[in-house]
């Protein structure tokens, strides 16, 4: 039970996000109306995704320096959960865009950047699957993962700020946190990021443990054959 406290924390934070996210007071803005609450659900997907990708890169570097198989597995599974979060982010963002910007997809630096990021990480898995040799696969994937992370920062964090973007905080648009995202919203938004990250990490650990069991099974089969 002691080792699982963070899972309980994640679940309780998400319940808080759901309840407070719908019932809490939010600033009143034209066009945005109640959809500003998507901050708690759409934007948090991307924040959690970036945190997971950062963790993935750290494990990739660890794998490069130590060559440990488990670090490579952790890097891969964290990136996979990150991609799932980015799918959720793309779909929810597209729906939100339809009702505030008028179309499911607009030619916006951040949207295209998000799509490119998604493709870059898809390529990570294609690269993994195309190399047979375990060690080579791990090292190649780790190097590519560092590249992918840097590209993600460029496409999501830098390029949208240099050109015009409909997203707040980009291309001269004021950020949500300047006046839109007031203290009441921060009280939900910040915990929500932590909550979704914890849930995503939980799911990732389940996948990691599943793969470790598979390894054990393979080892046992090898022993039986010898």
């Amino acid at each position: 039970m002691k080792r699982h406290w963070w899972k309980a924390l994640g679940v309780i934070i998400i319940f808080y996000t759901i309840i407070q996210g719908f019932l809490g007071e939010v600033p009143h803005y034209f066009i945005l109306n109640e959809t500003i609450r998507n901050m708690y659900f759409h934007v948090t997907m991307w924040f959690a995704m970036i945190i997971l990708m950062l963790a993935s890169v750290i494990y990739s570097v660890k794998h490069l320096s130590s060559g440990s198989r488990i670090s490579d597995l952790k890097a891969k599974e964290l990136a996979l959960t990150g991609v799932v979060l980015s799918i959720a982010g793309l779909l929810t963002g597209s729906l939100w865009a339809k009702y505030t910007w008028g179309a499911f997809w607009v030619n916006d630096a951040k949207l295209n950047g998000a799509a490119v990021t998604f493709l870059i990480y898809l390529a990570y898995f294609i690269l993994r699957n195309s190399v047979e040799d375990e060690q080579k696969k791990g090292r190649l994937a780790a190097v590519y993962n560092i590249f992918a992370f840097v590209m993600m920062i460029v496409f999501l964090g830098i390029l949208p700020r240099m050109t015009d973007s409909l997203h707040p905080g980009n291309g001269g648009n004021p950020g949500f946190d300047q006046y839109d995202l007031d203290a009441r919203m921060q009280m939900v938004f910040r915990p929500a990021v932590i909550g979704w990250t914890l849930i995503a990490v939980w799911v990732t650990t389940l996948k990691i443990r599943y793969h470790q069991l598979l390894w054990k099974k393979e080892e046992m089969n090898d022993e039986l054959e010898n």
């Binding site: 809490g24 007071e25 939010v26 009143h28 009441r184």
Partner: peptide, 9 residues
């Protein structure tokens, strides 16, 4: 909690 009126919510 109660906010200002005017914007459709």
């Amino acid at each position: 909690a109660q906010g200002p009126e005017g914007v459709e919510m």
